[in-house]
Every structure is written in structure tokens, then in C-alpha cells.
Amino acid sequence: MTTTLSQDDILQKLRQVLADSFRLDPSKITRESNLFTDLDLDSIDAVELAIQLQDITGRRVKAEEFRHVRTVGDVVEAVHTMLQA
């Protein structure tokens, strides 16, 4: 059901989640934004983000699927991969 989401759709949803959860300005959130240096997320926020992403992926996001995530683009690709699987 969710496999129809394109990377752009995922990016849109992710921007919404980031803006709502972490009080960020959506216009500042690009694919290149680094979650930790540019958007000032910390490791606790990363856990929260993983929880929020369950709404998009429809299943639990495991820590190892998220380990190499640094930028917004990385998250989009990780979510995209999860939806393909």
C-alpha cells in the first residue's frame, strides 16, 4: 500500500515530521541538511524521529537501519529502501 510513495513524497512527509516534532522551519530542511549539525538534532531526537517515521513506514524502524543516517537525504533513502523491502 505504501510502496507507491516516491522519494519526493517521502521528503515532503519527512519535512512535515521534522518541522512539527522539532520546531524547525520547513524552508530550511533540504535533502542536504545534516540532521545533527544543520538542524541541531541530538541522539535523543534521533530516537524520537525513528518513532515518528513508523507512521510513514508502517513498521518499527530498527536502530541498525538508521546508523549511517546523517542527512535528510539519507533518511529519505533509508525509508525508501524500507518501503521497497
Binding site: S21, F22, R23, I44, D45, E48
Partner: peptide, 8 residues
């Protein structure tokens, strides 16, 4: 308030 915002 959601935890991430409350913590901020």
C-alpha cells in the same frame, strides 16, 4: 507538549 519540544 511533545517531548522533543518540551525539552527544547
Amino acid at each position: 507538549t511533545p517531548a522533543p519540544q518540551a525539552a527544547r
